[in-house]
Each structure stands twice: as structure tokens, then as C-alpha cells.
């Protein structure tokens, strides 16, 4: 019985080898096109603190922190921040403030702190730090209360 089994197995093996030897090969071609893409994932919002002379409210000041965003891109895109247009200030603050958003990036692309648009040509992932600084001139000072701003980080 075991002899019959062995013979059958051998016959199947030979038949398989025969089949493989006769088989032809075909190339299957895969094409793929990736258009410029970009993903922004906000990790943390920022915090602004006042300077000792109360003329600066900034994420750069001691105790302040930048907002962080993860950028992943194929390249062929541009990164920028918009001027701050909407700001909530306490009612006691009636004087004008100049708001300056900036960003920097570390990772696949090293971008020094800037407020201008940056062209990203190569693929990779970065951690983008977003800062916001408000300054008052002359004798004006930041007031007691809550300030809130929204910085738009754009990838296009």
C-alpha cells in the first residue's frame, strides 16, 4: 500500500515539474501616479505668555509654547501661515496690537523660523512648530484677561 502511495506521489511530482517546465512567463505591469499631496495633523496648540514689560504676548516668551503640527508630504507643495485676522481680547485692552505668526520645521526638511511661504520639493515628514507673537508699541500694554487667536497653517 505504501509503495502505491509513493508511486502516486512521485508521478504527481513529475507531472508538476513537467507542467512548470512547460509554463511560460508573463509580465504584469503596474503603473502608479502620485499627485502632490499633503497631510497636516495638529498635535498641540500653542500658549502665549506676557513679557515682564507687558508689551509682548508671545509663544516665544518664558512659559510659552509653540503649537506643533505633523506635516507629511510627497513634495511639490508649499507651506505658509496666514496673517491673524480673528483675535479675541479682553475688554480692558483697547489699544492696537501687531500679531505675527511664524513657523519652523524639523525633520525631512529643515525650515528656519519664517512668516513667508516655503516651497517643499522633496517628500518626507516634519514636525512644524507654529509661533504667534503680539507686540504693543509706545506706552501700550497687554491687559488682564483672556486672549485667543487662530493661526492658519496652509499646505497647498
Amino acid at each position: 500500500m505504501s509503495l502505491v502511495r509513493a508511486a502516486c506521489a512521485a508521478a504527481l511530482l513529475v507531472a508538476g515539474i513537467d507542467e512548470a517546465a512547460l509554463a511560460t512567463t508573463q509580465n504584469v505591469i503596474f503603473n502608479g501616479t502620485i499627485a502632490p499631496t499633503c497631510t497636516l495633523v495638529v498635535a498641540t496648540n500653542g500658549t502665549m505668555t506676557a513679557s515682564p514689560d507687558l508689551q509682548s504676548l508671545s509663544s516665544h516668551n518664558g512659559g510659552g509654547s509653540a503649537g506643533t503640527v505633523t506635516l507629511t508630504t510627497t513634495g511639490g507643495v508649499s507651506l505658509s501661515v496666514d496673517p491673524v485676522t480673528t483675535m479675541t481680547v479682553p475688554s480692558a485692552d483697547s489699544t492696537s496690537t501687531t500679531w505675527t505668526p511664524t513657523y519652523s520645521a524639523a525633520g525631512a526638511h529643515a525650515i528656519g523660523e519664517t512668516g513667508s511661504a516655503t516651497s517643499i520639493t522633496t517628500p518626507g515628514a516634519d514636525l512644524v512648530s507654529v509661533h504667534l507673537a503680539g507686540t504693543k508699541g509706545g506706552s501700550n500694554r497687554f491687559a488682564n484677561g483672556n486672549y485667543q487667536a487662530t493661526v492658519t497653517l496652509r499646505c497647498e
Partner: peptide, 12 residues
């Protein structure tokens, strides 16, 4: 939050 970040992805 005090300083919010709006993520904006724009296609042309």
C-alpha cells in the same frame, strides 16, 4: 484653546 491652529489643505 488660547492659540488655535487651523490646518488648511488647499488644492489648485
Amino acid at each position: 484653546q488660547q492659540t488655535q491652529i487651523r490646518a488648511q489643505i488647499c488644492g489648485k
